[in-house]
Design a protein around this nucleic acid. Structure first.
Lengths: 119, 119
DNA sequence: TAGAGTACTGACAAAAATGTAAGTAATGAG
DNA sequence: CTCATTACTTACATTTTTGTCAGTACTCTA
């Protein structure tokens, strides 16, 4: 009985379902997701380590983005029953399979991004 | 004297300036941009042809996305002084250079997108 | 009993992205 | 004079994303 969707969401889903490109951009397209994925390419990290390596993100958003990446099957959340708590994040197989693509996306950006003249 | 920016925009710009990946996702990341770019890979199209090939997008948004792609140097807008007006859009050199990347993004999505069971 | 440490959560607010619907300018055809 | 055609624009509304800030649960240590 829940509201199925706005035109906005309907469009998003329709495109994602019909276009691999849109689907991919959907799952890696959050503000901090590329940075998170990039950080995890070298191995798993604790929540606190992620936070330290991405100082500008607020905790709420960081958690949101991690949850979405988890839901989309790109990362695993490993909880250890310890005190104080320990939670580690790592790429799944699907997540790791992004690497070559991320590399190429990154290179295209580095080449085509307008050059800064100073600062 | 203008408002420089919200934390939101500041973060966006900071990331884009430091990370090629984020920059790329920024310029191709609008709702309809991948579809537009994809459509233009085969050659230039008139505004009305684009609209026909992307029936779900509203005119306002289509124009917005085209303007952004133009601003970011991915497409050219060719205006012919005719009546009724004729405007064609084509990829720039930079825009065309996206092709291999888009291909890879698309393939990743096609492989990893959850399969639909029906419909 | 009072912190310290970790990984969050919740209420709220602001900003950005997207969408709807109607209107515009110019001119040639009828 | 009216209508069709094309490529938009404008005013407005809604939805989604991102951000701020304070608080929580759990235990070990001092």
């Amino acid at each position: 009985m829940r509201k199925e969707s706005s035109a906005n969401t309907l469009n998003r889903n329709k495109i994602s379902n019909n276009c691999g490109m849109a689907y991919t951009l959907d799952v890696i397209g959050g503000r901090w997701k590329p940075t998170i994925l990039w950080s995890l390419l070298n191995g798993k990290l604790r929540y606190s380590e992620l936070k330290k390596s991405i100082p500008d993100v607020s905790e709420r958003i960081l958690v949101l983005q991690l949850r979405e990446l988890e839901k989309d099957g790109l990362i695993n959340r490993l909880v250890y029953a310890e005190v104080p708590p320990r939670v580690e994040y790592e790429l799944t197989k699907d997540g790791a399979s992004l690497q070559p693509m991320l590399q190429i996306i990154s290179e295209w950006g580095d080449i085509h991004r307008p050059k800064k003249t100073k600062d």
